[in-house]
Design a protein around this nucleic acid. Structure first.
Lengths: 193, 193
DNA sequence: CTTAAAAGTCAACATGTGTTGACTTCACCT
DNA sequence: AGGTGAAGTCAACACATGTTGACTTTTAAG
């Protein structure tokens, strides 16, 4: 029993080490940019072990990008403060060092990786739309789409392009600027101010 | 004289053919995804000719992504209709078959290509900010940043991720939904509705 | 201590990349 | 018509990639 446990825990530890290294490098360089050799070197371990553990680079990527948006952390339903909550939650996904970076990796890889796109669509359908539906099920898909348009564009400018006014702005300013827009989209959002 | 002209026009024609093919493939697959061989095959021409004409793949990419946003087409200054105008103009950049696709290519390649990011920042500084400054020079950088956050996010969802509610929506709906937000950002945009 | 399996290393493979240089073909001016 | 330089082809290079199989080392039970 103990025997089995120890053996498992050894391999499980390197498995987690590989996953952690993979996530960091996929985050920094995307699917194509991060090579198996680089990931292995950062662990450090032989590149062939990565294949032994995960079967292929593609499978490693799939295992490294299991995304849970953790909307259940919102607890009792927010209601009219949803805009601020959503954007704070979204910023955490990128700025928390120990976050799993899953969504960030997918977004960075989405331009040239069909699997990343598919996963983002799944997350949208299975996690974002249900949340927005709780506010009002009418046209929830459209409103959810408007929200992620703004959030993804913000992430693109702030974290990927590093466009100076957006990337240099303190977090609180971002919340104050985009929170009301998200709120507006969340509750309907077809008319102007 | 004629001699020179004819010779130039021959090489100039294939040069343009290469550029056109390169733009299409860079647009579809990004910088890394589009190979010199693929671009050459689509012309069709030998891959080595591309190096002869442009020196390197990197230089070909640079030449293929000279972007002019053509804001001068706006003519007399729009003023309070700038939101609708901007988003229509932006949609044209992606949907016009004979547009140069420059910005679209840059955006698609930006995740893993520093040169693409640099060019986008230049376009932002040299073309977008000046336009927004014409409305009001106060905080023009910040307001321009907010606008491109929304526009780039829209492009990401509609054309790259193909996120179904946003990608399936008719063009006019997009204008009606996002136009007011852009307008709001353009004229100040810190307060809610 | 022995030993069998797990964990890890090493060198090589097949393939695809950008790029190069030697060669051939073509267009055009004298 | 013939020769000259441009335009284009061909095969190969050096290198990097994911992946594989043979091998060695470590681990822990008998």
């Amino acid at each position: 029993m103990e025997i089995q446990k120890r053996r498992e825990s050894k391999s499980a530890r390197t498995r987690r080490a590989i996953l952690s290294s993979a996530r960091r490098l996929f985050f920094e360089r995307g699917y194509d940019g991060a090579t198996v050799r680089q990931i292995a070197e950062a662990v450090p371990i032989d590149p062939s072990m990565i294949i032994r553990y995960f079967g292929s680079k593609e499978q490693l990527f799939a295992d490294a990008t299991v995304v849970d948006l953790r909307f259940q952390d919102f607890g009792p339903f927010p209601g009219d403060d949803i805009g601020r909550l959503l954007i704070e939650h979204f910023l955490d996904l990128w700025e928390n060092e120990d976050g799993d970076l899953g969504l960030a990796i997918l977004l960075r890889s989405s331009a040239h990786n069909e699997e990343a796109r598919t996963k983002i669509r799944e997350i949208f359908a299975q996690q974002v739309i249900p949340l927005i539906s709780r506010i009002d099920p009418l046209d929830a898909e459209r409103r959810a789409g408007m929200i992620v348009s703004q959030l993804f564009g913000l992430a693109l400018c702030r974290y990927i392009l590093e466009l100076s006014p957006i990337s240099a702005m303190p977090r609180d300013d971002i919340v104050q600027i985009f929170g009301p827009t998200i709120q507006h989209y969340a509750v309907g959002g077809t008319s102007t101010a």
